[in-house]
Write a protein that binds this DNA or RNA. Structure first.
Lengths: 246, 246
DNA sequence: GGGGAGAGATGCCGC
DNA sequence: GCGGCATTTCTCCCC
């Protein structure tokens, strides 16, 4: 069993040495900043990183229940037989207090990691794919140069159709919703205004589209094209193919 | 120093007992699912929860670099003197492999927490505040009943101005952007169509608005009203007030 | 540093 | 389950 008095010293040392520290504890938590929160006593994992980032995780779920951004300063002290962790981010004007009732585990270690994650299959990769295979949109669709594209804002793919009508393609890697249609509409209107054109086509490229979004799309004279983002479920699809061969 | 062979057993036991486990290790990570990622060798903290959620944190930054959702199954085994953690979520068709080179620390514990966070100062609270103090929008603004509100969709506050013109108020707790204006526009148009009205006013209530959004708002004949969400920087403001008294 | 938009977004609530 | 939308969104990129 961990003595709170000992843990107080361990946390203090770990913070001073800029180590990453992990604390499993029964605690109460209060936060005040962009909003306010209270969390009554329960078991949580608290992670503090060398850049000052703090995360509080409950035993279930994906997202942290409380957190503080990098750049936060942390101090520990004792208060009426309680271990108190105070976190302040003065730039962000945010505050978080952890009142520790019991410590389940503690660890700290200097962690070294210069690697960056390589991620493939995002929306930019999807736009690249369409650039290289414009038939995915429709026959006769010709993308224009990348430079032209950035010039007129954040349009994913800009091109002309087989009748040389300027066409905006907005990519979504998920099921397209109302917001996606609104976004496409904004781009089309912006282009019509900036280029003084009467007709600019709008195409939404996504694996799926909701019924409401489809309706709004049609109301505005735009079109939907079903396109799967690259690398989507790649390993699953391979394993299924493997099974199918037997 | 931790022996990988020992840690393999510890992880296996912790998973079997549905404990929360924390692993500090040098590792490589590959992911395939909705996208694909590779992460070369480096030190990270890996958190696995009793519901199967997995989080991988690098030593810096707020967000996890890799993760798996609740419902994921985890197994450990040895492969060429390497400890390998394999995570599979068959419902989501997602896979994640962790190749452990060295273990810096490990802990596992059964965590109990039935508490839910209480958060105040979100957008719904902001809408409530406007309902109770309609003068925050403008003199003569009268909100209509909550039931009426839900009937026509997700309008934050629906009311009438001093000249009895139907008015949609969209709240944002942050600096309002182009998407916020588009959203307001969508609600106004939806209401005009469903009620057959020629004029419906649109008001964007937020602490700030970007210059572009302000312009688009004016182009469409809508208005901006500066409103701070409740509980915003409460503790900071109190401390400042305290200082000012001296 | 602000603005704009994506995210392996996630999570919540409604129907 | 899908749909619509907020999030203490966060993060990245570009100006």
């Amino acid at each position: 069993m961990w003595e709170k008095k000992d843990v107080q010293g361990l946390i203090k040392d770990a913070l001073a040495r800029k180590e990453t520290l992990v604390l499993g504890a029964s605690c109460e938590i209060n936060y005040s900043g962009r909003a306010e929160s209270q969390l009554a006593r329960g078991d949580r994992v608290i992670l503090i990183k060398s850049d000052g980032a703090l995360l509080v995780h409950q035993p279930l779920g994906n997202a942290p229940v409380n957190y503080m951004k990098p750049g936060t300063a942390h101090t520990v002290h004792s208060e009426k037989d309680q271990l108190v962790l105070k976190s302040e981010n003065l730039q962000q004007k945010e505050f978080l207090d952890v009142f520790v009732h019991a410590v389940h585990f503690f660890n700290s270690h200097k962690l070294e990691d210069g690697q960056k994650i390589i991620l493939q299959g995002n929306e930019a990769d999807m736009a690249d794919m369409i650039y290289k295979q414009p038939d995915l949109i429709e026959k006769g669709f010709k993308p224009v140069s990348q430079e032209e594209q950035t010039k007129y804002g954040y349009v994913d793919v800009l091109g002309v159709d087989k009748e040389e009508v300027l066409t905006v393609v907005e990519c979504k890697r998920y099921c397209a919703d109302l917001a996606a249609v609104t976004q496409l509409r904004r781009y089309v209107e912006r282009l019509m205004a900036s280029k003084g054109l009467k007709k600019v086509r709008g195409i939404l490229a996504a694996p799926k589209i909701t019924a409401n979004a489809q309706k709004m799309l049609e109301d505005w004279g735009y079109a939907f094209v079903s396109v799967e983002p690259p690398k989507y479920l790649e390993r699953y699809n391979k394993s299924q193919k493997g099974l199918g061969e037997f």
